[in-house]
Simulated scan of single mutants.
Amino acid sequence: FHENLFLEHYAIRFIPRENGVHWVHVRFNGRDIPDSPFRVVVGHANADPGRVFASGSGLYQGETGHPCEFLIDTMNAGAGALAVTVDGPSKVQLDCKEVSEGYRVSFTPTAPGDYLITIKFAGINIAGSPFKCMVGGMNLNASRGGFGTMTTSSSYVQRSQGNLASQSTYNTIEQSSSFASNSRNNYASIDASRVRAQGDGLSRAYRNEKATFTVDTRDGGNAMLMVGVFGPKYPCEEVFIKHVGNNQYNVQYTVREKGEYMLVVKWGDQHIPGSPWHIEVV
């Protein structure tokens, strides 16, 4: 709120709701005054993953058809990007809501089994991540058969810093991949260094046009392919991964805004050679 002090002098007061860099715009007759916007640092300006904590029963156990819920405390962590991924037997919809302590996240599994919950802040795992959530109950995907299928769902929360964004944004990107395997949980043989990616979509992209590339995982062992595209303001709106056979994948993504983007490709929890790529979108 503002208060008229005397002779056209005003006092402005506001209460920030989260740590990080805030930008205060002061305008007169619709135009910014000199030096506006003003940079205000609340709390710690730099991201500190060591100050992020997760709690809640949903990190460790759950039941099919019922939400698994947990809390991520980011109050003292500064400004950075919070990324939550859930890997497991069923594709899930991640729901991320801002609360006074940070963020409340929930997902509802539809198949029993072990789910891995990875929580990263500024690209670094927080304490305890990844968490193993053991889900019981009936398989609600009775119509699905075949070999073992693992899927991954991701929620990315971009917290404001500098001039990248004027406010916090919440975007959910769902990505899924499947593989045929007699040993679904055989992670010991993963070797991301032997996975190869090629295509124009790794070096350049055009606004509102599909960019494509291929990923060959034949020599990389048994794992899950994860792809993420991050822009100067928001994550990419569309990322499609299609298994075309023989452990090879076609990837398509579409960006809506110009700028410099980062393309991440992981096999399991490991970057493949070349990842992350930096792409200029024109």
Rank of each mutant, 00 (worst) to 15 (best):
residue 3 E to W: 12
residue 7 L to T: 14
residue 186 N to Q: 12
residue 129 S to E: 09
residue 40 V to W: 12
residue 48 D to L: 10
residue 105 V to E: 02
residue 235 P to R: 04
residue 161 Q to E: 06
residue 91 K to N: 05
residue 126 I to T: 03
residue 206 Y to G: 04
residue 143 S to Y: 08
residue 35 D to Y: 15
residue 38 F to G: 09
residue 193 S to I: 11
residue 42 V to Q: 09
residue 31 R to D: 13
residue 188 A to R: 15
residue 199 G to P: 06
residue 50 G to S: 13
residue 20 G to L: 02
residue 274 G to T: 02
residue 53 F to D: 03
residue 37 P to T: 10
residue 168 S to A: 10
residue 178 S to K: 05
residue 261 Y to L: 00
residue 217 T to S: 12
residue 208 N to L: 11
residue 211 A to F: 00
residue 16 P to K: 06
residue 205 A to Q: 00
residue 96 C to V: 15
residue 27 R to E: 15
residue 131 F to M: 11
residue 68 C to R: 06
residue 79 A to C: 07
residue 41 V to F: 07
residue 267 W to Q: 01
residue 115 Y to H: 09
residue 88 G to R: 01
residue 157 V to C: 02
residue 127 A to R: 15
residue 228 G to K: 04
residue 204 R to V: 07
residue 213 F to M: 02
residue 58 G to M: 07
residue 210 K to L: 04
residue 14 F to K: 13
residue 179 F to L: 11
residue 75 M to W: 13
residue 158 Q to P: 04
residue 144 R to D: 04
residue 145 G to R: 12
residue 163 N to Q: 10
residue 237 E to Q: 13
residue 165 A to P: 00
residue 196 R to E: 14
residue 142 A to W: 13
residue 47 A to M: 08
residue 48 D to H: 13
residue 3 E to I: 11
residue 183 S to F: 14
residue 17 R to D: 12
residue 103 Y to R: 08
residue 149 T to K: 03
residue 62 G to T: 07
residue 113 G to E: 10
residue 118 T to G: 11
residue 119 I to L: 04
residue 169 T to C: 01
residue 74 T to D: 00
residue 27 R to L: 15
residue 23 W to G: 07
residue 46 N to S: 08
residue 149 T to Y: 04
residue 197 A to M: 10
residue 175 Q to M: 12
residue 236 C to Q: 04
residue 139 N to Q: 07
residue 82 L to T: 01
residue 173 I to A: 06
residue 225 L to F: 04
residue 194 R to I: 09
residue 205 A to H: 00
residue 120 K to S: 12
residue 143 S to H: 10
residue 89 P to W: 02
residue 154 S to F: 00
residue 58 G to W: 05
residue 272 I to F: 00
residue 16 P to F: 06
residue 89 P to R: 02
residue 212 T to M: 03
residue 173 I to E: 02
residue 25 H to K: 14
residue 162 G to Q: 03
residue 70 F to R: 05
residue 79 A to H: 01
residue 154 S to N: 06
residue 198 Q to V: 02
residue 30 G to C: 06
residue 32 D to S: 14
residue 17 R to I: 14
residue 136 G to W: 03
residue 17 R to N: 09
residue 12 I to R: 11
residue 186 N to I: 14
residue 77 A to N: 00
residue 35 D to P: 03
residue 239 V to W: 01
residue 182 N to H: 13
residue 17 R to S: 14
residue 200 D to H: 06
residue 121 F to I: 10
residue 48 D to Y: 08
residue 215 V to Q: 01
residue 100 S to A: 12
residue 158 Q to F: 14
residue 38 F to K: 04
residue 233 K to F: 06
residue 59 L to P: 05
residue 132 K to P: 02
residue 139 N to L: 08
residue 250 N to T: 05
